[in-house]
Every structure is written in C-alpha cells, then in structure tokens.
Design a protein around this nucleic acid. Structure first.
Lengths: 224, 224
DNA sequence: CAATGTGAAGACCTTCACAGCC
DNA sequence: GGCTGTGAAGGTCTTCACATTG
C-alpha cells in the first residue's frame, strides 16, 4: 500500500537547497525553525513549511524541526542514501572541472567514469581516473553501475552522446552543452547552459540600468 | 511615453533558448513557423507564440517568422546588441573552464577580468588574461567597464566576494558557489549549483527506478 | 506561547481553441 | 489554407492567515 506522494516539481527543486542549509545549521544546537531555515536557504518561511509538509509532519509545533532528522528525511526523499556513480562524457575544459569538483563527493555522487571521443586524450588520468574511449561508454556504465550521465561535449556531439547513454541504459542525463537533446520519455534530462544564465542576467541588467537612468534624471531635475 | 512591457520572467528565461535555436535555423531559407521553432527549442508551439507575442507582433500570419528579424528583436530585448564585459572571481577548476569557455564570446559576452585571492596565482595568464589580485576587483571593474560578475570561488568566500562586487558597482551576479548570498535588492543574483542539479536528477532516477521495478514485477506476475 | 501544518485566496504560467489576417 | 496572436480556461505555485498542537 505504497502511499502516492505527488511532491510538486518546484518543491523537489528546493529540497537540495534545504539539505545544504540544514547541513550548515546542524552545527549549532537545538531545533531549527522554518524562519531560520528560510533565512539560510534564501526563501520564505511559508514556502519552507509547505514544502516540508509534502514529506510528512516532521516538525514539532512550538519548537521547530530537528536538523539531523530532517536531513535524514530529505536525503531519503531525494534518494541520497547511496552515492550515485556518474559518468562524464567530454573531458575538455568543463569536463575537467566537473571531474575535479569536490562538491560532488560531498553531496551524494562519485565520478566513476570518464569518456572522450578524442583518441589523443584516452589514457590520460584526470581526477584519478583514466579517460576511456567513447566506444567504451556502455562497458563503463555496466562495470561501474553508472546511474547518471553528464554531457560536457561540444554542442554538435550532444545527440549522439545522449543516444549512446540511453542505449547503455542510463535514464538520467545532465546536459551542459548548448543544444536541445531528444530522448525517449522515460529518460529525464536536465540542462545547464552557462551562456543562457548570463543572457538572462543581461536582460535584467539592461532593464535596471534603464530604470536607474530614469530615476537619476528625475532626481536631477528635481521631481519626486 | 515608453511603453511598459512586463515580459513574464518565465518568458525571459526562454528567450535565450529561442535565440540559440533561431541562429541554427537561420541557415535554412524561408520563414520559421512557431512549430519549427518549438521543435528546435524543445517547447510547445503555443508557448513560442505566446512568448513572442510579449515582444510585439513580429510574425506574419499564414507564413511564420523571419528568422533574421526575430533574432534581431530578441537580441535587442535581451540587451545583447553589445558585448558585455564580465569578471570572474576565483580561478580554480571551474573559473579556468569558464574563462576558456568559447560559448561566451559567441553569445554576447567577453571575459574581461580575472581575480583570485591566492597570491601564488596572481600574474598567471589564463585565456589570454592575467589573473589579478582580489583587491584589484574594483579597479578592474572600473577600467574594463565590467557589468556582470561571476563567482567561482569556494562557498566560504562567496559573501565577501559578492559584497566587494556590489561595492564596486556591479548589479548583476552569477554565483556558481554552493552558498546563499545576500545582496541589496537592486542587485540581481542568479545561481547555478552543479550538485543540486544532480540531486534533482537523483530524485527522479530513484522514483522512476521504483516505478520500473513495480512494472517489472507486475509483468512477471502476469497482471496488466 | 511559539511555531507547525494547511485550507483558501491569489498570482503566475501553460494550454486550448479559434478569430483574424496574410 | 495556413499560421499567428490572444482571450479564456485550466493548472501549478506562492502567499496568507489561522486553527492546531506540543
């Protein structure tokens, strides 16, 4: 009789944030209130309470939440009770940085495979792992029980890499390349496009600069 | 009489995606329909039309959109008619990769300054630029007319770096460090947390793996 | 009394479906 | 005829405000 829990997508995307904040807050003693957690995570207290309520009633009215217990519950919900082995395809600038990123190890992941199509890179050791040929992708996935694939190749290669990952059995892909990728519906893809983040910032920068301009000239001409 | 155009946030965050897709589609001749653009960008046609309608009526009924013209309009809306000079603080693994990322140059940005608090790195040339001391941040911002700051330092340094950026006059910050940053309300901060993206994927991976499990055993026991 | 947990209200976003126009 | 542009409907997410409870 598994309880059907439709945790909203928006909530899921904030759980990791709460987790990160709780790990910091857990240093200090005593229970953590939704206000304190909200402050640490940079969201509103109401959001914290509603989000956490989807996981169950893990707080104590009048006191707050026990940090250690909540951490455990969120980890369980996110599936972070185990360390997930990940594979990185494309060991260029970004792939290198990702392979060496300490944060993954501390937060539930282990870089367990590296592949690259460039033969001259094969064999090179990065972050303690040898780069293997692109054609070994399926073998690495099987041998290392890889669960999540990370694409850090040039945009042109994305679709082929994704196809191979799906073929090898991966059902979760994180795509850093600036291109849309098409996969069967049972596969989850998330994307991070660094230039797009900057472009969004540029929009607000431009918009606010224009506002500052207007306010500036208003002030100069003495109007309120 | 400047027309007040409240382009929704969700739309703003998709404009860069349309821009990227249009640049690809512009190779081929003829107008681009909302269906074609939707396909290329990985969204629904209705969304494309509604999003574009906030910018104005730039399409032609019965035909579609002129790619070149739309590209121009979206660039204008996003403020990408100029190349924005950006500064990267923290030239470790990730900072290096960002400094060398070709995509920025192609999509409206120019890495114009690098700073790092580690004295032993100062002077080193990365992507054709010398790393300068953290204390020169304000000077670099002024001299290079930096508009956007990128934080790629360890989490512990984030708040100090952000404070310095704000003090130096920056109003747009992209934060890659896994920590919340507090800034005055006139400053826009966007964040990218690589581990969080993986944690969100882990949630769906776990959830879907459980579903596959159930389906598998159902099939095995002969139920529909 | 203090802080959670939650219905209800409201804001925002997406999808529908079709009138309007080329 | 074909495709845009858009009101209206339908969802989802956020915020409010307060009853509930340790």
């Amino acid at each position: 009789m598994t309880r059907e829990r439709p945790v909203p997508e928006a909530t899921v995307s904030r759980l990791p944030l709460y987790l990160r904040s709780l790990v910091e807050l857990a240093e200090t003693e005593g229970p953590v209130s939704s206000d304190a957690l909200a402050e640490a995570a940079g969201v509103t207290p109401a959001k914290v309470r509603k989000d956490l309520s989807y996981l169950g009633s893990y707080g104590t009215r009048g006191r707050g939440y026990d940090a250690a217990y909540l951490i455990h519950q969120i980890r369980r919900e996110l599936g972070l009770t185990q360390h997930w082995p990940i594979l990185i395809a494309g060991i260029g600038n970004l792939g290198h940085a990702l392979a060496n990123y300490r944060g993954f190890g501390e937060r539930g992941f282990r870089v367990a495979g590296l592949v690259d199509a460039d033969g001259s890179k094969v064999g090179e050791i990065v972050a303690g792992l040898p780069i293997r040929p692109f054609d070994d992708l399926a073998t690495v996935v099987r041998d290392e029980r890889i669960a999540i694939g990370v694409i850090a190749t040039p945009a042109t290669a994305v679709q082929e890499v994704a196809d191979r990952m799906v073929e090898a059995g991966l059902r979760s892909i994180l795509n850093f390349a600036p291109a849309v990728v098409t996969v069967p519906e049972e596969v989850t893809v998330r994307k991070v496009d660094l230039a797009i983040e900057l472009q969004i910032l540029a929009y607000y920068e431009q918009r606010n600069a224009a506002l500052r301009e207007v306010r500036g000239s208003r002030a100069a001409s003495g109007r309120s």
